[in-house]
């Protein structure tokens, strides 16, 4: 076997192994029961502390590429918002692709809870310019967003009652797959003192823990693991039903058994790789 063919064989066996683990765990998976960590619970507690009917701002900064990771998170957060009758205002500074996705996620969740567009929630369009629109929203919301996504004047939306600038929101949740979080921390939190909770992809989570100790962000929901922890607090009925019917839908908790299985597989592969590497080195040394 040529070295190239050997390399390909190793590559293929890793793909095949990961594929097999996913398939098997998908067939026999189930629904995990994760207890929330303090970091995730802090976001929940902040939302829970809002008086009924308060406005809450969700900056939905992800596009379909990260939907698999962040949609379950957003669903879990929305569940809590609807239960508390919060007025959910959704916007985005990520990309022109984001409002469409955010709109579909919020509408589906709102419809399931009998919430009415305009009264209980509103979705605004994409704002280009990084931190600039956040700074402008902090001065006058209505000067930046004259209408919602559908063209309804902002002042005609009951959900926007009492909101004239960013700081009228007692809490902002930034659910993001990109570095727009930096803009929210720089402009929203540092400039206006906006209370900020984060929902981020797992890849990004470690980069934002530093802002927790300084209380620049109130908490972090990180990846599917964070979403499953949030679900354990807000979607208990859905979890119970999923366990009984074995129909998990798009619950993050249904993804965790597969995640765990693959993590174990990757750890074993890393260990195996190291063993083979050191064995190879020893062999090299031994040979004259």
């Amino acid at each position: 076997m040529t070295p190239e063919a050997r390399k390909n064989a190793v590559r293929w066996s890793v793909f095949a192994l990961v594929g097999a683990v996913i398939t098997v765990s998908l067939l026999f998976g189930g629904v995990s029961d994760f207890h929330p960590t303090a970091v995730v619970r802090k976001v929940y507690d902040e939302v829970e502390a809002l008086p009924d009917g308060s406005p809450i701002l969700i900056s939905s900064d992800f596009d379909p590429g990260s939907e698999a990771e962040l949609k379950p998170m957003m669903d879990a957060v929305l569940e809590q918002c609807w239960r508390k009758n919060l007025r959910v205002i959704v916007m985005t500074i990520c990309s022109p692709n984001s409002p469409e996705l955010a709109d579909s996620i919020v509408r589906a969740s709102a419809d399931a809870h009998g919430k009415v567009y305009g009264t209980d929630y509103a979705v605004f369009g994409y704002l280009a310019g990084g931190s600039a629109p956040i700074l402008a929203l902090g001065q006058d919301w209505h000067a930046v967003y004259k209408t919602d996504r559908g063209g309804t004047p902002c002042r005609d939306l009951p959900a926007m009652k009492g909101i004239s600038k960013l700081t009228d929101f007692p809490l902002c949740l930034e659910i993001s797959a990109v570095s727009t979080i930096d803009y929210w921390i720089l402009a929203g939190n540092a400039k206006y003192g906006l209370k900020l909770g984060l929902g981020v992809t797992a890849v990004m989570a470690t980069d934002y823990y530093q802002y927790l100790a300084t209380r620049q962000v109130v908490g972090i929901i990180g990846g599917v693991s964070g979403a499953s922890q949030y679900e354990s607090m807000t979607r208990q009925d859905a979890l119970r039903k999923a366990r009984e019917t074995k129909e998990a839908g798009d619950l993050a908790s249904a993804r965790m058994p597969t995640q765990s299985a693959i993590h174990v597989t990757i750890i074993l592969l890393v260990v195996l790789g190291n063993i083979l590497y050191f064995a190879g080195k020893r062999k090299e040394k031994a040979s004259p």
Binding site: L26, E69, T201, D207, R255, H263
Partner: peptide
């Protein structure tokens, strides 16, 4: 290491979404 672990988790979430 923590970043790599999280990256694996993130990428596999996306893979899981497609496989589902």
């Amino acid at each position: 290491g923590a970043s790599y672990g999280n990256t694996v988790m993130g990428r596999l979430s996306l893979l899981y979404g497609r496989v589902l």
